[in-house]
Every structure is written in C-alpha cells, then in structure tokens.
Design a binder for these strands. Sequence first.
DNA 1: TTGGCTGCAAATCTTTTGCAGTTCG
DNA 2: CGAACTGCAAAAGATTTGCAGCCAA
Lengths: 155, 155
Amino acid sequence: MPVTHQLITAVQERVRLEAKQRGIRWTSQRQVIVEQFLLAGEHVTADRLLERVREVDPAIGAATVYRTLHLLTEIGVAARVQLGNGAASYEPVIGRAHHDHLVCVACGTIIEFHDAAIEQRQEAIASAQGFRLLHHRLELFGLCARCQAANATSV
Amino acid sequence: MPVTHQLITAVQERVRLEAKQRGIRWTSQRQVIVEQFLLAGEHVTADRLLERVREVDPAIGAATVYRTLHLLTEIGVAARVQLGNGAASYEPVIGRAHHDHLVCVACGTIIEFHDAAIEQRQEAIASAQGFRLLHHRLELFGLCARCQAANATSV
DNA sequence: TTGGCTGCAAATCTTTTGCAGTTCG
DNA sequence: CGAACTGCAAAAGATTTGCAGCCAA
C-alpha cells in the first residue's frame, strides 16, 4: 500500500490547518519532516527519519524531528509504537485503518493485521470494568514460517 | 492475590535449582533481590525494586538488580512489560496465570485481565500467517470510571 | 514586531558494561 | 583455587530541554 503523492499533499494540508488552528507555525523543516515521514513507509524510528530528512536538508537537527513527531502524534497523524526494547517507531495514522502487529522475533519481519473480533472483546472488557477505551496496543511475537524452517534445519 | 511466604520460599528454591543447573551462583544479593521482587506486588520498575532491596541491604548496586532481573526473565520467573514510555516494569510469572493490562491514562490504575476468546483469535491470526506464536503483549488504555466522573465535573 | 521555532549542546533517564576486588562451590 | 559475581563509575542509547538567534504571521 504505497502512499501516493496526492495523499501526502492532502495530509500536509490537514496538518497545516490543524497547526494554524492551534497557533502553531508551519516551517520549512516541518514541511520536510512530515513529507519524509509519510514517504518512509510503515514504521520509522526517529533516527531513521532524521537520516531521510537530512538527505533533503542536512541542517535539520534531531530535536526538531522529535518535536515534530510529538506534534504529529498529538494531532493524531502519527502513532508511537514500541516494538522491541530499543528506539520507538512511529507510523502514519492517516488514510490507514487501525492495525496491530505480528512480529517475527528471529528476522524482524512485521505483519500488520486487524481483527474485529478482538477489538470487540476489548471494548467488552473495558466497559465491564467501567473504563472508556481510548486506544490499545497489541503485539504478537513468534517465528515466521521461513524462520521456523531455518531453525528446524540448523538445530 | 497476595504472595504467601510459602510461595516465595518455593520460588526461590526453584530459581536456585535452575541456577545451579546452569552453573549460575546463588549469592546473598540475589536472595534479597528475588525475595523483594516477589514481595513487591504486581509491577515493579528496576528502580523501585532497588529501593526495596536497599532497605534490606543498602550496599546492593543498581547493576546487580538489573542483572538479576535479566536472569529471572531468562529463567522464566519474571516478565518485562513496557507500560507507558518510561522505565520498564517487571512482574512475577510464577504461580500466576498469563494476563494482559487495562490501564487508566489519567490515574495510572492498572487492572489485569485475561480473555480466552482473544487468546484464541491471536493463535488463529498467527497460524493464518504461518507463524508459531511465542508470546504477546496486549494493553488497553482508557479512562476508569472515577476519572471519567472527575473529568466530566471539572470540564 | 513578536512569540513560536530552530540547531546545538548539555542534560536526563534508563540500562549496560569495563574493571578490580570479592565470594561461592 | 578459579570462575562467576559484585559495586562503582563510566559508557551508551534515546529523548528532552535550555538558550540565543531566527523567522513566519
């Protein structure tokens, strides 16, 4: 599911408007960061995004990338996900349905999925406890078919 | 579900045996750390555990707590969970069924739950992708009843 | 003009690691 | 005795923050 140029333009416009409403400024750095963030694919770390951003404008600093990612997260355009124990990843929320992750612990492959039945149970569990559910995080860890095979051979 | 003294003794014995099998030594520091870990309740950060441990033996260092937590995790007595964005928490796995977390984003209350239907769907999703499921992480974030009420009043 | 933004560097925070001395087995 | 362990302090990795200058509105 590649992100189209048209979609990027639309999202940038949305972010810009949202920003204006909040008295937040639109700078050339943010333009670049948002663009590269949307182009980067499913999951980017702040570090990886900084690399991409610097290919366009080498003067942009890490702090600005972090600050912009926070901004995008607040606005609801990005979501922070903690896969593994290292740096957090960010993913675009725009134009994409909510999904969870199935991660291969051996090769790192990430498959996204969505399951209505699970979502439904989650709502049920939350309301049974009197909670209003805001969001959730579900990650499944295992071995993909390829790594199972590789492991069976080598061990 | 408070942890009984008897259970603690049993777990420590198990850890000690497991350690012996691997040529890992049993030291007075580990004795204290495991004991305090089991007494600490559902979720402890390394930092909080260090505090508790130092009430018993002030000479114990942070590195030793981290190293022991890794050890317990490897042996399968502890599990590391990342709730929120700060320090990771550890929880005892012994004598306790697997569970997931329902977290109030306002007051931090954590409710544990287990749902067979969700677990079943997870297995189904994994095998549909050819994965062998090893473990998972599910966290629901929302507002508890109390905080919903408080919020409604104040806003 | 001016308050928000930027880059840089320093500061935080959490966790890991190198090392010299200590201790379990 | 020797390998594994310990505390300390320094290192490392990720993210945040203070500050002086910059710039969008």
